[in-house]
Nucleic acid binder design. Sequence first.
DNA 1: GCATATGTCTGACTTTAGTCAGATATCGTT
DNA 2: AACGATATCTGACTAAAGTCAGACATATGC
Lengths: 290, 290
Amino acid sequence: MLDPVSRVRRFNRAVTSAVGALDTSFLGRGRPLGAARVLNAIGHGRTDVGDIRDYLGLDSGLMSRLLRSLEDEGLIETTAHGDDARRRIARLTPAGKREFNAYEAISNRQAKDFLSYHTQREALLAAMDLIASALGRDGAVLDEIDPRSDEARYCLGEYYAELARRFKQGFDVKLSRDPDAKDMVRPRGSFIVAMSDGLPLGCVGLKGTSGDFAEIKRLWVAPAARGLGLGRRLMDAAEKAARELGIAVLRLDTNSALAEAGQLYRRTGWTEIPRFNDDPYPDLFFEKRL
Amino acid sequence: MLDPVSRVRRFNRAVTSAVGALDTSFLGRGRPLGAARVLNAIGHGRTDVGDIRDYLGLDSGLMSRLLRSLEDEGLIETTAHGDDARRRIARLTPAGKREFNAYEAISNRQAKDFLSYHTQREALLAAMDLIASALGRDGAVLDEIDPRSDEARYCLGEYYAELARRFKQGFDVKLSRDPDAKDMVRPRGSFIVAMSDGLPLGCVGLKGTSGDFAEIKRLWVAPAARGLGLGRRLMDAAEKAARELGIAVLRLDTNSALAEAGQLYRRTGWTEIPRFNDDPYPDLFFEKRL
DNA sequence: GCATATGTCTGACTTTAGTCAGATATCGTT
DNA sequence: AACGATATCTGACTAAAGTCAGACATATGC
């Protein structure tokens, strides 16, 4: 009925008025929006004044005045940066912390109200993840983290769940050669996640082996983030880490049911090789010399 | 990893910055945002000044000044309303129409660019429909229309496609007793669609029969709009139309594969009756006395 | 016909946001 | 110590948005 462009514009209209409502709800605390935004940026951990200015896109004069007004209210304190006394850092006072919490409560309530109206909660959340990832398409940041951390565990859990859905015979981690976490920590290996505003969108593991090669394991991209080139970025980061660790040969195994993955490998310089392990799940094996 | 509230808030952040970008793109035509918004509201068919004021949430003084500035630019003309000379109606001049088209081109380009970045186009559009419908949950307007109109045809097409997906044996319209469009037009019957900002979100038909009852047919709610109570609103509207037409008994047939529909009927005063036709698809039959 | 309500407009005002040119202090480099 | 670069601040300004009281014309109910 509606063409794609009209559907995007219908979405824009709906969202514009919702965002407007969210903004005006912030006015209820008797502070102009600009000051409220700065206070919230500080509350969310941005302490460096220049950083806040860039994030909010403010002129330095305006920023300075907003900081002064928050200081006059007794909500923040500014001090010189330890390393560079030209830069200033801002912190919430106890009163500021209380005020920030009040803004947080408003945001949380609105989010909760929105969810509570709808019965298709999971579908709605998945749709929001998808759109937020698409809008912030350059926003995912790759971080090297411990494979035993919460973020890594979450990614691996999603990865295993997806394998279980896509393999005809299902998937049981215990039957697979689950890489030891220690093999994916420097200096033996590495584990990289893609984070977008707090949500992990993908991961990849570089697993050191006792042989003369390392393995790429657990490449996963969240459904909400597919088609954004994240898989490629993760693989590039893993290769970079491998080079840094002096690894000359990479191998990986995969399953032909994961067609996108196979395509990615072929397009990025991997060549198919014979089976090099006895894991029951993979049926395709690749190698790449760095 | 993230709790539902955090996921909604992540969405809000992503969307807020996107909306900001859309707003600033409107500034390129040398007109403040307020005036641009009024011009666009008029271009989209809102001619009544009071209506525009409510829609944009403007003070009457501010509204008046914005209208004046657009008039001075030669983009709009205002005249008194025919029925009530206190009210004013605003219309685009040819120059205003050109300017409006320029804004439309900006919006269309942005929507197109957004879509072109993403490979999961259909998933993205479905997600946008879902969220737009959820946000504008009170926004769907029920209209009585001709069952042969484009909107009605679209709804019926989606309805048949869904039956084909959900019935084990598939669905072929030709095998079903397809109601003649004439039976769903007053004074014999009625056809009602739920429209939300240009997108049809659901429909229901009231089909007059030669017997002493009328039938409810083609109750459908778009996947994007389920859980919002739209099915109930459509059924209520159909019953209201039936009462207006002096119909005392309603019947309908359905299939047990459509569980939500059966639940709705049972909850709203319908009672199960024996099969009253030989259509091959339905296996459940209901009646309601008005 | 009159009182009251309604829709729009005007004038006078305030607040918020944003801009720009210096002033000031500090840093890194030579 | 002197230099230019950098980070922030201050003052002086403008534009845009929003508020409010009252004016005016027109509609509605009695």
